[in-house]
Simulated scan of single mutants.
Amino acid sequence: MWKNAAVKSLGWFAVASVVAGSLLPLSLRVHAQKNAGESLPVWAWPLLPPGTPAEPAAKPTGEVKHVPGSSASYTDKEIPGLFLVPDWFPNEHPKMPQVVAVGRAPGVNACGHCHLPTGMGRPENMSVAGLSKGYMIQQMADFRDGLRKSSEPRFGSTRAMIHTAQQATQEEVEAGVDYFASLKPVKWIRVVETNRVPLTKVGALMMVVADTKQTEPIGDRVLEVPEDLEQTELRNPHSGFVAYVPVGSLKKGKALTRTCVACHGKDLRGVGDVPSIAGRSPSQMTRQLIDFQTGARNGTHAAMMKPVVQNMTLSQMVAITGYLASLRP
């Protein structure tokens, strides 16, 4: 199985927690590969170590927010809400069905809150734009039936998906997957090979840059961070992510993925209900590979993946997911 380097803590700083599936800002500075005493890489599951106290989150003031190029406006109270999706560019996508735009309180969060109206999502969740209807319906059933969990039970986005899948009606599931299946994925992640990266910390279930003036060795990581944290927190679908990978990862990853084309297609953009893996979040893909290994993820599609990942090392995962993220989706 895989192993990672031990943690070197530079001090803890609060900035993110999960309450009822909602992401609230708190953060933790890390100079690390994983949390002390844990085997899961913190860059793939960005969480505070158990028992670490969180600083109180800043309270919304009602300030009106805008993003470049949009005439829309939302307050800082509305943007984090689970039942209202900030739709900054409504002309760039089809009309969202109710379950995507506002959900159904109290049990069904608006799908677009996490996955965004574009379906491209963020590192803590899955990019669902353009995935097949059959694949997404099966995944919702797996979440509902306990066949798809997380290797880290505290991970809020997976918990939220399980809860939503258990509460949603079949009609709501159908409406959501029809919408996301109709979308065309866009280039959302810029991949950079490097030996050193900006100093990072744990943010709201994603890694964020702590200090642009300080750097650290990348180690054996894919470090996926927002291009512009402020715009990411505003849920701006025009502001993507950069994924730093060790030098040589793309060449190594290309070689390692040659066998993936047998199921995922020659361009790795999926075949039928086998999903696209090109241009997707490397953090999310790493979590899924590990979840297949640990048995946290089961079901029809998992049965095909388990033999593939059984002996895969973390170093191989870094190269594979970094390369896949670099491709056109």
Rank of each mutant, 00 (worst) to 15 (best):
K3D: 00
A6W: 00
K8V: 02
K8I: 01
S9P: 09
G11H: 06
V15H: 06
A20K: 11
G21W: 00
S22N: 13
L24F: 13
L24N: 15
L26P: 00
H31C: 04
N35P: 03
N35T: 08
A36V: 05
L40R: 11
L47F: 04
P50W: 02
P50V: 13
T52Y: 01
A54H: 08
T61A: 06
E63W: 03
Y74T: 09
E78Q: 13
I79D: 03
G81K: 04
L84C: 08
L84M: 12
V85G: 05
D87R: 11
N91K: 14
N91L: 15
H93T: 12
K95N: 07
V100C: 14
V102R: 07
R104L: 14
P106Q: 09
V108T: 13
N109K: 12
N109L: 10
G112W: 10
H113A: 11
H115V: 15
P123Q: 10
N125K: 02
N125Q: 11
M126E: 10
A129C: 11
L131F: 04
S132M: 10
M136N: 06
M136V: 04
I137V: 15
M140E: 06
D142M: 05
F143G: 03
R144S: 13
S150G: 12
S150H: 06
P153W: 14
G156F: 03
S157I: 07
R159V: 10
A160S: 13
Q166I: 12
T169M: 14
Q170E: 15
E172L: 11
E174V: 12
A175W: 07
A175F: 09
V177E: 01
F180E: 05
F180R: 07
V186F: 10
V191A: 06
V191S: 03
V191Y: 07
E193P: 00
R196A: 11
V197H: 04
P198W: 09
L199G: 01
V202H: 02
A204E: 02
L205A: 12
V208R: 01
V208M: 07
V209Y: 01
T215P: 07
I218Q: 05
D220Y: 00
P226C: 09
L229A: 15
T232L: 14
E233W: 04
R235V: 10
N236C: 12
S239A: 15
F241W: 12
A243H: 08
Y244K: 00
K251W: 08
K254D: 12
R258S: 09
C260Q: 06
G265W: 01
K266T: 15
R269W: 11
R269V: 09
V271Y: 03
D273P: 05
D273S: 10
V274F: 14
I277E: 01
I277F: 01
G279I: 10
G279R: 08
R280L: 13
S281P: 00
S283Y: 05
Q284W: 14
Q284D: 08
M285Y: 03
Q288P: 00
G295Q: 14
A296W: 00
R297Y: 04
R297C: 02
G299C: 01
H301N: 08
A303M: 15
M305L: 08
K306P: 00
V308F: 07
V309R: 03
N311G: 05
M312E: 06
S315M: 09
Q316R: 06
A319E: 05
I320P: 03
S326W: 04
L327M: 14
L327P: 00
R328L: 14
